[in-house]
Simulated assay, not measured.
Amino acid sequence: MQTSNIKELLNSNGIKATWQRVEILKVLQSSNECLSASQIHQKLSAKNINIDLATVYRVLELFDKKGITQKSVINRKSFFELKKYEHCHYFVCIKCQQKTNIVDCKIDLIKEELRKRNFKVLSHNLEVYGICNKCCGGD
Results as ranks from 00 to 15, higher is better:
2 Q>I: 10
4 S>V: 14
4 S>T: 13
8 E>A: 11
8 E>M: 13
8 E>C: 07
10 L>K: 04
11 N>E: 12
11 N>F: 12
11 N>D: 08
11 N>A: 15
12 S>L: 14
14 G>A: 06
15 I>W: 10
16 K>P: 06
16 K>A: 10
19 W>C: 05
19 W>Y: 11
19 W>V: 10
22 V>S: 09
22 V>I: 15
23 E>G: 10
24 I>V: 10
24 I>T: 10
25 L>T: 06
27 V>D: 00
29 Q>C: 09
30 S>Y: 04
32 N>P: 00
35 L>Q: 02
38 S>K: 14
39 Q>L: 04
41 H>I: 03
42 Q>R: 05
46 A>L: 11
47 K>F: 02
48 N>Y: 02
49 I>G: 00
50 N>M: 05
50 N>W: 06
55 T>D: 08
55 T>V: 04
57 Y>S: 03
60 L>Y: 03
61 E>N: 14
66 K>R: 13
70 Q>G: 00
71 K>R: 15
72 S>A: 07
74 I>A: 01
74 I>V: 14
77 K>N: 11
79 F>T: 00
80 F>C: 01
81 E>D: 11
82 L>I: 09
86 E>K: 13
91 F>Y: 15
91 F>I: 00
92 V>A: 09
92 V>N: 01
94 I>E: 10
94 I>D: 09
95 K>I: 13
96 C>F: 04
100 T>L: 10
102 I>S: 01
103 V>M: 12
108 D>I: 03
108 D>V: 04
110 I>P: 01
111 K>S: 05
111 K>N: 07
115 R>S: 06
116 K>V: 08
118 N>V: 12
121 V>C: 13
123 S>T: 12
123 S>L: 08
124 H>K: 06
124 H>R: 11
126 L>I: 11
127 E>G: 02
128 V>P: 01
129 Y>P: 00
130 G>C: 04
132 C>V: 01
134 K>W: 02
135 C>D: 06
137 G>K: 08
